[in-house]
Design a protein around this nucleic acid. Structure first.
Length: 267
DNA sequence: CACGAGACCTGTTCGC
DNA sequence: TGCGAACAGGTCTCGT
C-alpha cells in the first residue's frame, strides 16, 4: 500500500495529533515489528518522550522525539491510525503508543512486514537511500547522468530505493507510462530528452498522488482517491487513455507491471 | 554488477 | 459450494 504519497499523506494527517504530545507508554503486540533496539530498552526509553515533529523520508515515517527518532516503515500492509483511548485495539495492531492526549497511535500491519526503529541516529537506518524525487537535488540532469551509470532494466532501477527514494510498484508504472518508456528498456539507453520526460513524470505523478491523498485499494482504505485516476496500474485490458490500445500486464522483476503496448515501445 | 528465486506474512480473489 | 493456487502497495538475501 504505502509508497511516497501514502506515507506523506499519513505524516500530514497524524502530525497535528502528535506534535507536542507525550508518549506515556508503548505496547508491542508483535515483537518482530521492532527492528531495534531490544523491547526492554525501547519501552523504557520511549516512555515520557515528547513528540517534536512528524516527517517523512522516502517511505519511512519519522516521528521526531525529544531525544530519539521513531522510524516506521509500513512495507506492504502497514497503516497508522490515531484512536481514542476508549477504542479497543484491532486484530492486526502491532504497536501502540499511548499518548498524553487520551488517544493512542496504532501501527496496524496485517502481513507483519512492517518495521519500527527507535534510535538516536536516523541516518543509521536511512543512510543508503537515494534522493527525494520532490526535492531540489532531483533534476533531469541528475537523472540522465545517473541512469547512464547503470545497465539495468528501467523499472527495477526506479524501484531501487538506493537509486531514487519513494517510488513503489504503482507509481513506477504510472511514471513510465507518462514518460512513454518501457519498463524493460535499459537505463543507460535513456536519452537526455527521455530523462527529462521521466523526471517530469515522476514529479507530477507523485504530486498528483499526494494531492489525492494517496491510493487506497482492496480492504485497506484511508480516504485516498488516486486509485480512481490510474492510467495503467490495475487496468489490464482496459483502453489506454492516450491512444486507446489495450493495457497489458507483464512481470518485471517479479512485480506485476502494466504498460500500454503502443505508447511504451521496447526499442 | 545485474537478475531471478525464495523468504518473510496474512487475506482475498481466481480458476477449476 | 469448495478448495488450492495465485496474487497483493516492500525489501532482504542468496545463487548464478
Amino acid at each position: 500500500m504505502p509508497e511516497l504519497p501514502e506515507v506523506e499523506t499519513i505524516a500530514r494527517s497524524i502530525r497535528p495529533e502528535l506534535v507536542g504530545k507525550t508518549i506515556l507508554s508503548a505496547d508491542l503486540l508483535w515483537a518482530p515489528t521492532l527492528a531495534a533496539p531490544s523491547v526492554k530498552q525501547f519501552k523504557q526509553q520511549v516512555q515520557g518522550q515528547k513528540v517534536r515533529d512528524v516527517s517523512r523520508r522516502a517511505k519511512y515515517l519519522d516521528i521526531v522525539l525529544k531525544d530519539f527518532h521513531l522510524l516506521i516503515h509500513l512495507r506492504m500492509s502497514g497503516d497508522i491510525m490515531i484512536r481514542s483511548s476508549k477504542v479497543v485495539p484491532e486484530k492486526h495492531d502491532r504497536l501502540l503508543l499511548n499518548l498524553s492526549s487520551r488517544k493512542y497511535l496504532a501501527f496496524n500491519d496485517t502481513r507483519k512486514f512492517g518495521r519500527v526503529w527507535f534510535t538516536h541516529d536516523p541516518e543509521s537506518v536511512l543512510a543508503k537511500l537515494g534522493p527525494e524525487p520532490l526535492e531540489s537535488g532531483f533534476t533531469s540532469r541528475w537523472l540522465f547522468e545517473n541512469l547512464r551509470k547503470h545497465k539495468r532494466q528501467l523499472k527495477p532501477l526506479l524501484l531501487d530505493q538506493t537509486f531514487i527514494a519513494g517510488l513503489g510498484n504503482i507509481y513506477t508504472d504510472e511514471c513510465l507510462h507518462m514518460a512513454k518508456l518501457h519498463p524493460l528498456s535499459l537505463s543507460k539507453d535513456v536519452s537526455r530528452k527521455q530523462a527529462e520526460a521521466l523526471c517530469e513524470a515522476i514529479q507530477s505523478v507523485l504530486k498528483e498522488g499526494i494531492r489525492r491523498n494517496g491510493a487506497s485499494i482492496d480492504w485497506v482504505y484511508r480516504g485516498g482517491e488516486y486509485q480512481n485516476h490510474f492510467r495503467v496500474y490495475d487496468r489490464e485490458g482496459e483502453p489506454c487513455l492516450m491512444c486507446g490500445a489495450k493495457i497489458q500486464k507483464l512481470t518485471v522483476g517479479q512485480r506485476g507491471t502494466h504498460v500500454c503496448p503502443k505508447c511504451q515501445r521496447l526499442r
